[in-house]
Design a protein around this nucleic acid. Structure first.
Length: 885
RNA sequence: AGGCACGUAGCUCAGUGGGAGAGCACUACCUUGACACGGUAGGGGUCGGCAGUUCAAUCCUGCCCGUGCCUACCA
């Protein structure tokens, strides 16, 4: 008994052993000087704070499949790995640590804080990289990058300065999304909108010089402290006489005008709107049109400032309660309705966003977006699946300028210096010492850092050494494919497109493959708070990385989310085990087998051989096509079906007879085919399940052409002796076996018991095929006495089935009772009758016959004929059976 | 409000203008010398509803119902 492989596949040691070998031997390394065609992918850099979650696992499994496949297909592959400094997220992590120590970042100061973040990154930032390795990711780790690396920081500065010089970066005082907890501006994308149940308060503002009141409705009554007008629609008859008059703003007793503006919806509420330019985006715009005062009533923590009169120093919700109570006491609260509206929250800490007036840096995206749109329209970059193109365009056309300054400490500091003497700006690639305008040394750098996504946008070329021109960029830019989830299509993909086109004059990637989101078994997003997270590392521990990868791949159908549960993973663990055991079987029967120098084309192959080789060639073709089209699930199911249902269920079972028999030549022939199929199958499967395939491949008999399966060629089917006619012949044998098994199963014949069978063939061809396949029929059908011929008379008492033009009869006597067989036959007859009815009806339809294409007609005629022939045999048998009763 | 998906076997999902598929679950039988993480056989679906195009619709078109997601400045 062969001792090379254990009885069941045990992934742990295998995974560790081979990953280490691959990495230390440098098989993941990309050579920019290679003459081979290039293939490159940049990893979507996970946050340095991150731990591997299902999304990463899927994302990186797919990338690894592509990279391993391309590497085996003769490409020089660069898979560029790295991590993202994740400004706000990382700062929050370290701030939390400080908080646990009873300190905050202001107490230790900027420099110490940043040093502390770096220290944290050194200690625990590499976690996710180690986890990617557990998954089998074949990244070129020697090139690992971090967005805060010196090189990438240089690229960030270069880009900032050049955009500034091209008037594509500017500074403006506007309303921005402000997180009162993170104390920073956020871009529009970093705000998540969620519908929340709240209230709509209707407030009464007294009109000056009149006894009338304007009723205004608001979801945020505290902002009335900053109101600078009440607006109505210009054509609203109710208020025609009031426009131009003033109301007295309650509580703070300020006089504010009543203005007319088209923005107001006459039919909503009272038709009058309170206008707070400093705290609402619409009001801000309206305020600009009417030249209204912008009164900021909050500080950066969302606490009422000195403009809030009596509410000074109250937190915003506290102020809200007090404002409402005070208004009510004065009879100025008309009514309160329940109201649901969308509230903006910080995407990092979920704090409710405050629209806040402040001076920030912006990227003017218009000209950049125009190029990014054009590139996709022209097909320079292809988005797969294509449906996402529409989403991409939709967003690109409606793009607002991008707020890139963040009031945090962890990130790329904005390379702008302000002069205390001449008030001019110095924008510089190097750290500035003196003002570029007046030469004064009294300059200070902007305290803000850049949005994390600013550096991410440069990732495809900054990681390759840009702004330096080098061979890596020449060879590997633009990248071949970007694999990512749709959740960062805007955050990241769109911005890489803009920056790549601007600075490399070429798209950053030829293809963008957008994959699904991984959800839990109930279809909910996995999150810590819901407690429904499946940890990929636990999955790998329990089922092995290969089973996990194959599961994800099998579910990675386009355009649908993946609902993952551990039961599903077990199924693919079983698949790995099946492959393992099939390999064990092969190895046991390949002892002393030497695969060298034998050409399958020179062997006298059996129909079974021809069949499996033909199926293999088909599988190779289908797998390649599926991968070409990013149809990962199709590739996976093709391979699954071939491995299990063709190779294991049929070929191995049929091979046993020859392997165990005395015919040395037959044995060698089968060994050759068995070896060939298994060896190629392992190579086909390697991109998907790299560990187990390496482990088996390494112990195959004979000399290996290279040290690792990673370097072996991906099968292309060339040289395989395919033979569709031979394969069809085998199908008849298989059909006969299935028919015999069907009778046995239906009639409850014990599996161990042999039966006699009589195969009555209508053609000499069938007879000849079955005679050749008789060994398989005997073994797989558990047939003892086997009679094959033409015009045979079946025994009086027998069970009958039909396969093609072959009538199969198993003598009943002593096996089963007549009633059972009658039942079985009637069931079978009912099935066939359904077919006959269907096709007879179709073919008697004149319109169908007149219009349907010839091949359809021919096929249906054939099917009707087959069904009728089958019916005749079954009816005859039924008659005989009934006669016995 | 707009946009995009989705609705197929008990569950999770593939799929195609020409007789409905897989995995899991289920039923029966089987420790046969690769594998019980296994084998063989079997049951199970008016392919969301209603119209239309077509010789032919689960697939194309329209409407409706239901479910998700994304984008959006209606207080």
């Amino acid at each position: 008994m062969e001792q090379k492989l254990s009885k069941a596949y045990e992934p742990h040691d295998v995974e560790r052993k081979w990953y280490q070998m691959w990495q230390t031997s440098g098989y993941f390394r990309a050579d920019e000087n290679s003459k081979k065609p290039h293939y490159s992918i940049v990893i979507p850099p996970p946050n340095v704070t991150g731990v591997l979650h299902m999304g990463h696992a899927l994302n990186n499994t797919l990338q690894d499949i592509l990279c391993r496949w391309k590497r085996m297909s003769g490409c020089e592959v660069l898979w560029m790995p790295g991590t993202d400094h994740a400004g706000i997220a990382t700062q929050n992590v370290v701030e939390k640590q400080l908080d646990n120590e009873g300190r905050d970042r202001h107490a230790i100061g900027r420099e110490a804080f940043v040093a502390r973040v770096w220290q944290w990154r050194e200690e625990s930032g590499g976690q996710i990289i180690q986890q990617l390795k557990r998954l089998g990711a074949s990244c070129d780790w020697e090139r690992e990058r971090f967005t805060m690396d010196e090189g990438l920081s240089t690229a960030v500065r270069e880009v900032f300065v050049r955009l500034y010089e091209d008037d594509l970066i500017y500074r403006a005082n506007r309303l921005i999304n402000w997180c009162p907890r993170c104390h920073t501006a956020l871009s529009d994308l970093e705000v998540e909108h969620e519908d929340k149940q709240g209230h709509l308060w209707h407030l009464r503002y007294p009109v000056i010089g009149s006894d009338r009141f304007m009723i205004v409705a608001t979801t945020r009554p505290e902002t009335m402290l900053g109101d600078s007008a009440v607006a109505v629609h210009p054509e609203d008859e109710r208020y025609q006489d009031l426009v131009g008059k003033k109301v007295l703003l309650p509580l703070v007793d300020r006089e504010i005008p009543i203005v007319a503006d088209e923005y107001v919806d006459k039919d909503f509420g009272s038709g009058a709107v309170k206008i707070t330019p400093a705290h609402d985006f619409n009001d801000f715009e309206l305020g600009k049109r009417h030249n209204l005062e912008e009164i900021n009533i909050f500080d950066e923590s969302g606490i009422v400032n000195e403009n809030g009169g009596p509410y000074f120093r109250q937190e915003r919700y506290e102020a809200r309660a007090n404002v409402v109570a005070d208004l009510e006491n004065r009879g100025l609260l008309a009514k309160v309705d329940s109201y649901e509206n969308a509230v903006g929250e910080c995407y990092r800490c979920k704090t409710v966003i405050e629209p806040y007036l402040s001076l920030q840096w912006y990227v003017k995206v218009g000209p950049l977006a125009a190029e990014a749109i054009k590139a996709v329209q022209q097909g320079d970059t292809r988005i797969v699946p294509q449906q996402w193109e529409k989403t991409y365009f939709e967003w690109m056309y409606n793009l607002q300028d991008w707020c890139i300054s963040r009031q945090i400490w962890w990130g790329h500091r904005i390379p702008v210096w302000y002069c205390a003497e001449c008030d001019e700006l110095t924008v510089s690639r190097e750290n500035a010492e003196v003002c570029s305008h007046c030469g004064s040394a009294a300059i200070s750098q902007d305290t803000d850092v850049l949005d994390t996504w600013f550096s991410s946008a440069l990732w495809p070329f900054s990681t390759m050494g840009w702004p330096e021109q080098n061979e890596t960029l020449n060879k590997f830019y633009p990248t071949s494919c970007l694999v990512t989830g749709f959740d960062i299509l805007f955050f990241w993909v769109a911005r890489m497109m803009m920056m790549g086109l601007k600075f490399m004059q070429d798209v950053p990637f030829k293809d963008v493959y957008i994959h699904a989101l991984v959800r839990d078994a109930l279809g909910q997003k996995m999150s810590k708070s819901k407690g429904n997270v499946i940890d990929p590392l636990h999955v790998i521990d329990e089922y092995g990385a290969d089973a996990f990868r194959f599961t994800l791949t099998s579910f990675a159908a386009m355009g649908r989310d993946i609902k993952l549960s551990t039961e599903r993973i077990a199924g693919y663990r079983n698949f790995c085990n099946k492959l393992w055991n099939a390999s064990r079987f092969a190895l046991m029967n390949l002892e002393n087998f030497d695969p060298s120098g034998i050409d399958l084309n020179e062997l006298e192959l059996s129909d079974a051989d021809r069949w499996i080789l033909t199926r293999l060639e088909e599988t190779i073709r289908q797998t390649g096509q599926a991968l070409d089209g990013y149809k990962f699930n199709e590739a996976a199911s093709t391979l699954y079906a071939f491995t299990w249902h063709n190779f294991c269920d049929w070929y191995i079972e049929m091979a046993k007879d020859d392997l165990y028999g005395d015919d040395r030549q037959a044995r060698q022939r089968v060994q050759n085919v068995l070896f060939t199929v298994l060896e190629q199958l392992l190579r086909l499967l390697h991109p998907f399940i790299p560990f187990i395939t390496e482990e088996i491949w390494q112990v195959l008999p004979g000399e290996r052409p290279c040290e690792t399966i990673m370097q072996a060629e991906f099968p292309d089917g060339a040289g395989l002796p395919t033979d569709t006619v031979g394969a069809e012949r085998m199908e008849l044998v298989m059909e006969v076996i299935r028919a015999i098994r069907n009778i046995r199963g239906e009639m409850d014949v014990p599996p161990g018991r042999q039966v006699a069978a009589l195969l009555n063939c209508k053609s000499g061809r069938s007879q000849q095929i079955l005679e050749e396949g008789s060994a398989a029929i005997r073994v797989l059908g558990k047939v003892g006495e086997l009679t094959i011929g033409q015009s045979l008379a079946p025994p009086e008492q027998s069970a009958t089935q039909v396969a093609g033009d072959v009538e199969i009869s198993l003598p009943l006597a002593g096996l089963v009772d007549v009633a059972e067989e009658e039942k079985r036959l009637q069931k079978e007859i009912a099935k066939v009758q359904k077919d006959i009815d269907l096709f007879a009806k179709k073919l008697s339809n004149e319109k169908f016959v007149a219009n349907a294409p010839a091949h359809v007609l021919e096929k249906d005629h054939g099917k009707l004929r087959d069904a009728e022939e089958k019916m005749a045999v079954l009816q005859e048998s039924l008659g005989k059976i009934q006669a016995l009763k």
